[in-house]
Structures are given as structure tokens and as C-alpha cells.
Write a protein that binds this DNA or RNA. Sequence first.
DNA 1: GCCGTTTTCGGCCCGACTGTTTTCAGTCG
Length: 591
Amino acid sequence: MLSPMDKEAVIEALEEIAVLLELKGENPFKTRAYVNAGRTLERWEGDLKRWVAEERLGEIKGFGEALQQKVSELVSTGKLGYLEDLRASVPAGLIEMLDLPGLGPKKIKALNKELEIVTVEALEEACQAGKVASLSGFGAKTQQKILDGIEFRRRYASHHRVDKALALAETFLDRLRSHPDVIRCSIAGSLRRHKEVIGDVDFLVSAKESAAIIAFFTEQAEVESIIAAGETKSSVIVAGGIQADLRVVSDREFPFALAYFTGSKEHNIVMRQRAIQRGLRLNEYGLFRSTEETRDAELLEECATEEEIFAKLELPYIPPELREDHGEFESAEANDLPRLIEWTELRGSLHNHSNWSDGRQTLEEIIAHCQDLGCDYWAVTDHSKSSFQANGLDAVRLRKQIKTIESLNNGLESEGAAFRLFTGSEVDILSEGTLDFDNELLSELEVVVASVHQGFTQSEAQLTKRFIAAAENPFVHMLGHLSGRLLLEREPYAVNQKAVIDACAETGTWIELNASPYRFDLDWRLWRYAKKKGVRCVINCDAHRAEHAGFLRLGAGIARKGWLSKDDVVNTQSQDSLRKALALKRASQGS
DNA sequence: GCCGTTTTCGGCCCGACTGTTTTCAGTCG
């Protein structure tokens, strides 16, 4: 007997249908109907099984007869005949080809029909044999582009971690700013929206004359190859394999182009629709008083900034991080957008390592660096004994570290310094759900983070139970990197994150937003849920070396994306009020 | 495949660039 499908599995099935339909060359609007249905379900919070049983799916916008039938079948039987037929009719290799630049559904379909190609390997062979160039609609350049794409995919993943993308972006942005013809310039795209991983880096520039800027951009030393260089638009690949796109517009167009190229695509669609509803037309060049296609300056609504565009569409300013069509329009209309946290409001990090375990710096070096940065406090939470791979501390070494930190703090106090190092531990949650230290030792620490570092191949039920058990321990202040994912490297643990969040809400346990660009864990998509449940966030560097203190800024970007305000984040508090909160957490749960 | 106070058909966001054509289709964002 097949088990009935949950919401996530249904969403995956709908997305798969959309991809397969696209490859079959179906009506693109039919394809979009499946994409939209998946997106709607992602944000929908009802009980899917119940709605299917009560035959209420039709009440959800975008669910017509066909989708109601398919989702009902999926939910009640765990499978879908329509999808199985589709899968059988489209070779898996064709889906893979969609990732290659220059290949879309039409060209893939032609390759399949004319040359009977069904795998990427066969495609590569056909290109090398020169067979692809002779197909109608293809040519030598297309063939070479496909070969380059296959080679590129081997060398690099198509996505990049934010720290890498940001380093590139800031270097290029500085240079663009210094160019005499540049009037305004900005990062756009997913990097401006603070996504957790970046596909490419988008730059937008306003200038009176574009050719010189395009040339300047493509001539940068880091540029490895030029994909495109037109009048107003250029794409390059820089060292390390990141694609960077530049658009040059007039200064009058700048705010419209900035809004457009910041996206997301889904957010832009709603913005355009709002324009149409008001008898206007919005594109990257302007907001026009005509629904006809036009760039007529006479019909232009002048806007000097993005704020003014939102105002013309009767909205308050929506910060880039929220532009995902994840409820920002509803919230903006109700004038209920949160005032998002600023990274400068963070006063320190509560999960970090020293050279006592697997960190690089000594306690003294950490103090000096954090004081330089202007932090009010910093917790040293080295690994516990079971993390022997990370040189975890046993009880004897930990007690010795506590004494050492106390002595360093006494030194700071006698100097009249306000900064303090907090004692702590990142204590392992063991496979049975118990902690690596007993409560007596934990009670001697100022900050306790509980994390999973072993046994993460357990079942979802087991892992979830372990986290909940840790949250229920009164000496645990917060849970560390809950999903355990390593971006672009390792999938999350099988853990029911919402169930753990619920348990944290019950027990008053905080949850870490691990600000390492390798993790960004919890995911930003879960913070609104946590916030609604009253669970507080701690933005932690998980620093293993001095420069990781800079992760606070990246973590704040993800927190903003999760709709968090200063008051939702524990480590925006002063040292005194944080001490009280740390103590209160234990007192309230102990009683 | 969905939708509708202009409702059962016809539209669904829209423009730039490339490569292949000889005026435009496909891809991309």
C-alpha cells in the first residue's frame, strides 16, 4: 500500500510536471499553471489531506478541475498516472539539457527529433562530430556553445556562495563607481535580494553614454570570457566561474531598471499587474500612462527613486530582501511591513570557536579582534568531547577554559573595558538525544548551544526527537544549525523543522541563524513561521577564525529576508539585558 | 490549464541579445 503524499511531495510532482510539459513543447501557459499551483501550495498553510477529503481544493486560486483531480489523486493514492505517463515519454537526459546555456525546450526537442539524442553524453559526441551545426536553426557557434556549456558544468556548479559573489560584486562596484561616466550604480538581482546562494552577479549603471562602460566592464582583469557585449548589456565569466551581467541605462531610467533587475521575477509580475490595474504600464524603462507598448516620454510618470515607483503603485517601499512575492504585497497594503533588522544593530555572536577546539585564534586574539570591531560581547562555544574530529573539549578542559576566560574578563574589567567574553559550549546532541555534558557542567556555562554533529543519517522521526529533547533541556539556550545543510554540498538532515520550532516555542528555546555562508541555517523561508510562534533568533557567526566575524552582516541579510526585526533577534541586546535573558531562559524553564 | 463586474474565448509580463536567417525564432532574465 502506497503512503499518501504530503504537501512537499505534491509540490515536487507539480514542478516536475511543468518541466516535462515544457520539454514536450506544450502551451507555455499550461506549463505556468502547474508552476503557479506549486508556488501557491508552498505558501498555503491548510491541511491538504483534509481539504482533499472535503473536496475543497477548488477554493484555492489557480486550482481548476484538472489540478483538483491530479492533486487529489496524488494525496490519496501517493501516485499520479498522468505524471508516470509523462515521465515515460521524456528521457531524463533531456531534462538535464535544460541547464545548458543556449538550450531551451525547442532546441532540445529538435535535437531529440532530428538526431535521436537522449543524453548529455550523446549530445557532446554529436557536437564533437559536427552533426549539431548542420541542423536547421543551429550553427557552428551554437554547437561550440553547447560544448562549452557541458565543459563549464563539469568545472563549476551553476551556483555560488554569497561570500564569493559579494567579494566579486564589491570589487567591480568600486571600479564602476570610479568611472567618470557613471552617474549611479548598484548591485541588482538575487545578490541585492540577499538570496542564500547566487546564480550570477547583476550590476546596473546609469550613464549618458554606454559604450565606454561596456568596454570598461569587459576589460577587467578578472574577466575570463565574454558571453555578450551589446549596446546596453554585457555578460562575462570571471575567474572562479561566476557570471556577471551589466546593464547600462539612462539616469532617468535607473530606478525603474533597478526595480526590474532586482526582481524577483515573481515580484515583478505582481508589480506589472498593479500598474495595469491602474491604467499604467511598467517596464525597465519607466512607468507610462498607457497600457499600449510605448517608451513615449510624454506619457512618463517621473520617479527619481524606487520609493517613488512603489508610491505610484500605492505601496510603501518594499525592501529588496522581501521581493519574492511571499506575502510582501498583502503586508504592504495593510501597512504592516516589518522594520527589518540592520546588521549594525548586532552586538556580538553567541556561537564561536577558539583554538581550544577547531578554531584558529587564541582567546586573547579573539578579545582583541572583537574589541576592534566594536562588539559588546562574544561567546566562546567550543566543541564538546564527542566531536573528537574537531578537538572537542572534555569536562576537565572545559572547566579550565572557564577559569581562563574568567581571568581574562577580570583583566578587561580592571582596564575599564566594557567588552566581555562569555563562557560556553557547542554541546553535541548525541544519537540517543542526550547531551554530551551533564546538566551540572552546563549550568556553569553562560551560553549553551546544542547541535547535531553525528548520527545525521537517522530517520526524520529520530532526528526530530533528538532536537526536541535538546530544546527541552533547561540549560540549553539555543539550537545550532538545525537543518545541518551545507549549501551546494550537502542536503539538510531529515528533520521536521516545524515540529522542532514548535518545541522551541513551548520551551522558550532560541534558534540560531547560522550566518556562515556555507550554512545560512535556519533557512530564511522558515523564520516567519518561527516568528509567528514567538521563537527568538540568534544570529551567530560560528566563527572559526577572525575574519568570520564579518558573517554577522551576511546573517543579518538572511534575517531580513526572513522578515525579522531588531526585537526578534536576541543578540541585538545590550550586554546587561542579554545576561538577564540568558538567566531568565533557565529560570523560567526550571520552575 | 486557469480565469472572468469587458465572463465560456482569448489572454496570460515583456524586452535584449545571439545566431541564424535574410526578417526572425529561441533563449534568457
